[in-house]
Design a protein around this nucleic acid. Structure first.
Length: 387
DNA sequence: GAGCTTTGACCTGCC
DNA sequence: TGGCAGGTCAAAGCT
């Protein structure tokens, strides 16, 4: 709850949504202010995270100290504090100067921290990686700082960077360092196709979101490869629901992303269990994936015999991809209502023990027999303050 | 050509 | 029984 309060407090520091258009209009005049404000926000956020970190550590298994979603209200997105992602008002040199750190420095730091984290981090990292290229240097450095301060690993579910102002990126990432690192492992083509184009598109057009298109590309978000097989407009909560299934042929894990009207992910529901580790590289051959899959099944069974978490479980069994996995071991447990309404992302994992009734679905397909194994053993989610 | 996304239609369960 | 909503299919299009 502390973190929740922290982000509430942070929100106060942020630009008020209604002022954002004005802010945007005044963007040209506020470069200096932005710089100051960006630093200030970063400090505030970092400080708050630090304050909340002890509590998080005390309840490592239950508390997630981070707003995993970098979601912003649509208003936030058009805040005048668009420095990095837009690159329109400030060129690279200016940006670097303002941020006081070069991209190369960041990379160096990140690399170093990455290796440190892999060896030191006592808790599994659950991350939906965010492309490094889309993060501001400020956010990178702050995330690293936070990382070193708390062993608690965080689950971060990034909102498409295209929708984020640098402020928001900084704020959210600052408590979830590794997405940056992780994304570096992602194949370039993935990163590009998944994130960058939208950023460019939206930055150039100054649009904040595309309501009909899932802005979070899940295939890169949690280390697994998901294929979207359906999308539905739902009324409650109002928005859309995207249905993903794992691309592994023998994996029947599914994921449902609930988005609000503006395309922000408000809830993620995992169903069934991955029978494989998340792919390490996109250039993995299918053969290698299949081979890996068999190995992973063994690992997950032997290492996590009592848990049925899919993503997280598999991920914790992976020593090579610790950071890229979406494991959520110390997630803040909340009642669903806790995370409703304020833009919190609920993540549920639904696994079957065989007793739960199968949800509505067509009887046709063969995956019925596989899917029948799932449902709702664990339903857990977390929430955090809206940023 | 493979893989993915989009999207309308279909199926099923609930009220 | 009909309407509604959720979940899925599958064709079309895109990369």
């Amino acid at each position: 709850m502390a973190e929740h309060e922290s982000f509430d407090a942070l929100q106060v520091e942020k630009l008020k949504p209604n002022e954002q258009e004005q802010e945007e209009d005044e963007e040209g005049d506020e470069d200096e202010d932005e710089d100051e404000e960006g630093k200030r926000l970063g400090e505030i956020h970092l400080g708050e995270l630090q304050n909340s970190a002890p509590e998080s550590r005390e309840t490592q298994l239950e508390t997630l100290a981070v707003p995993s979603t970098l979601e912003l209200s649509e208003n936030d997105q058009c805040a005048g504090f668009q420095v990095n992602s837009t690159s329109q008002s400030i060129d690279g040199a200016q940006l670097q100067e303002q941020l006081g750190v070069s991209h190369q420095e960041i990379l160096a730091i990140v690399t170093h921290q990455d290796s440190q984290m892999q060896t030191q981090s006592p808790v599994q990292l659950a991350v939906y990686p965010t492309p490094l290229s889309e993060l501001s240097p400020t956010s990178v450095t702050q995330s690293i700082q936070t990382q070193t301060q708390s062993p608690l690993q965080l689950t971060v579910y990034p909102t498409p960077l295209s929708e984020l102002s640098p402020t928001s990126v900084t704020q959210s990432i600052s408590s979830a360092p590794s997405p940056i690192l992780l994304e570096q492992k992602l194949p370039p083509e993935k990163v590009n196709t998944l994130c960058t184009p939208e950023v460019d598109k939206q930055n150039s057009s100054d649009h904040k979101f595309i309501s009909s298109v899932p802005l979070v590309k899940t295939s890169a978000s949690d280390g697994y490869n998901w294929r979207k097989y359906g999308q539905k407009q739902v009324k409650s909560p109002q928005g859309s629901r995207s249905y993903y299934r794992c691309t592994y042929s023998e994996c029947y894990a599914k994921k449902i992303e609930c988005c609000d009207h503006s395309g922000y992910v408000t809830e993620i529901v995992y169903k069934s269990q991955h029978t494989h580790e998340p792919p390490q590289k996109s250039n993995c051959t299918k053969e290698s994936k299949l081979a890996l899959s068999a190995e992973c099944v063994r690992n997950s069974v032997t290492e996590h015999p009592c848990r049925t978490f899919n993503d997280s479980e598999v991920s914790t069994s992976s020593k090579e991809r610790i950071q890229e996995t979406p494991s959520i071991p110390e997630r803040k447990r909340q009642s669903p209502s806790d995370s409703d309404g304020n833009g919190d992302v609920k993540i549920k994992e639904e696994h079957g023990d065989g007793d739960e009734p199968e949800p509505k679905r067509r009887v046709k397909k063969s995956n019925l027999e596989h899917a029948s194994t799932s449902h709702i053993v664990f339903v857990w989610g977390w929430g955090w303050g809206w940023v």
